[in-house]
């Protein structure tokens, strides 16, 4: 069982999208996985908030043809500091870690996010999210479960660091695939333009992920992106990621360009 984000086995986070507004302001500074990078910050969407997101990306896998990825997600703040999510992704063309090139609808993901505390004093904000990817993909078996622990902490004043620790369990791994895969992402966010502009946040990350295939080493990726408010209720985001280090023949992508749109209602 795999979570295929952007239909890519080694990039398990990108499609866990969420954009949310903080109260009345659409908050470009509350960073969510997939929009556009892979890390989450430790904030849930507001209670009773609904958010919808779409995204697309161009993928350039190492040694293969280019491909396209699509993603959609719906989120609902069902309780204070907690939200549910439903997501579905699709891909066409080349992608890393699989010879598949046809258009393919991916797995249906269900997620639950809970924030334990806001950042106060010197204590980071802590959250946990759990995701289950159902085998809706053609030929898929079992489910893939991911637990992610998230801590967000101010670095200086407006800069924030976001540490995401992942553990992914596949209930029915295929031959040669790992059952458990750890991962870590260290994200960074900073509003850009203060104190004269209040509409965009720059994001960056470094991540280490374990590929599905046994015998391959971890893949290290770097990414940068921008989230910008475009209407009173919506954001546009754009990002670029690259697998800069792939040990032991791990499948990886030279470059990935991501763009998305999020709105809350």
């Amino acid at each position: 069982m795999r979570i295929r984000l952007l239909a890519n086995a080694w990039l398990p986070l990108v499609l866990f999208l969420s954009a949310h507004s903080s109260l009345r302001a659409v908050d470009h500074n509350n960073v969510d996985a997939g929009r556009p990078l892979s890390f989450d910050d430790a904030e849930a969407i507001a209670f009773r908030e609904r958010a919808a997101e779409i995204g697309t990306g161009g993928i350039y896998p190492k040694g293969g043809p280019a491909g396209l990825a699509f993603s959609t997600e719906f989120l609902y703040g069902f309780a204070l500091n907690s939200h549910l999510s439903v997501d579905l992704d699709a891909a066409a063309g080349g992608r890393a870690g699989t010879p598949e090139k046809d258009f393919q609808v991916g797995k249906l993901g269900l997620g639950l996010f809970h924030n334990f505390n806001r950042e106060y004093g010197n204590a980071p904000a802590f959250s946990i999210r759990g995701d289950v990817a159902l085998p809706t993909e053609k030929g898929a078996k079992g489910v893939e479960i991911r637990l992610r622990g998230i801590a967000s902490k101010a670095l200086i004043q407006y800069d924030r660091l976001h540490l995401n620790l992942d553990g992914i369990v596949t209930t029915a791994p295929e031959t040669g695939e790992r059952r458990f895969r750890p991962g870590v992402v260290l994200g960074y966010s900073k509003p850009i333009g203060y104190p004269r502009s209040f509409i965009r946040t720059g994001v960056a990350e470094v991540s280490l992920q374990t590929p599905e295939q046994k015998g391959t080493g971890p893949v290290m990726s770097l990414g940068v992106g921008l989230r910008q408010q475009v209407t009173v209720r919506s954001l546009f985001d754009i990002g670029i990621r690259s697998d800069v280090l792939a040990l032991d023949k791990a499948p990886h992508e030279d470059i990935q360009i991501i763009a998305g749109f999020s709105t809350s209602f």
């Binding site: 904030e43 969407i45 209670f47 009773r48 505390n117 904000a125």
Partner: peptide
């Protein structure tokens, strides 16, 4: 309170 406790409008 130490929660964020945001409520949607």
């Amino acid at each position: 309170n130490k929660g964020k406790n945001h409520i949607f409008y």
